Simulated assay, not measured.
Amino acid sequence: MTKRTVTATYSVVLDETVELSLVDVCEACRIDAESVFEMVNEGIVDPEGSDPTNWKFNTLALRRLQTALHLQRDLGVNLPGAALALDLLEELEALRRRTT
């Protein structure tokens, strides 16, 4: 008999109008602020606010950050590659919505 390991993943659906601070995003993604700064500089997300202490992220930005982290951790994609992949995935999703 073959043993299988099952991993459960839990997620929370957030209202798209929710605004998250830099601290909130770091906690949600389990990363440090420097990693978020790098992703902002790469164009993965564009927070509202003039400086990091005032940055606000919406839930779509949180999802982009989490997806970029998965691309890095699971597939070894670097930040520029993750930014490109995210843009292409969003474009593909938009095209699918238009055709249905």
Score class of each variant (00 low, 15 high):
H70Y: 12
L69Y: 04
N78S: 11
L75D: 15
E16M: 12
L60T: 14
C26A: 08
W55E: 04
D32A: 11
R73G: 09
S50E: 14
V13I: 10
V23P: 10
L95C: 08
A61K: 01
V45D: 03
A33D: 11
E93F: 06
L60M: 08
Q66A: 12
N54V: 13
C26F: 02
T100D: 09
L92T: 13
D32S: 10
A83S: 10
Y10E: 13
V18M: 11
L69T: 01
T100H: 15
L89S: 11
T7K: 12
L75N: 15
D74Q: 09
V13A: 13
L65G: 02
T100P: 01
N58D: 15
E42I: 03
W55F: 14
F37V: 07
L88N: 07
R73W: 05
T5H: 13
T2L: 07
V13M: 09
L14I: 12
L60E: 14
A94V: 02
V23Q: 15
Y10W: 12
G49W: 02
A8I: 14
W55N: 03
E34P: 01
L84F: 11
E38V: 10
R30E: 10
V45Y: 01
I44T: 00
D24A: 01
S11E: 12
A33M: 06
L65C: 04
V18T: 12
V23W: 04
L71Q: 02
V13G: 07
Q66C: 07
E48V: 15
L88W: 04
V40E: 05
W55Q: 03
E91F: 07
T9G: 10
L65W: 00
L92A: 13
E27W: 13
E19K: 13
G43C: 05
T100F: 09
R97N: 13
H70F: 13
H70A: 07
T5A: 09
F57A: 08
V6A: 08
E90P: 04
T2Y: 08
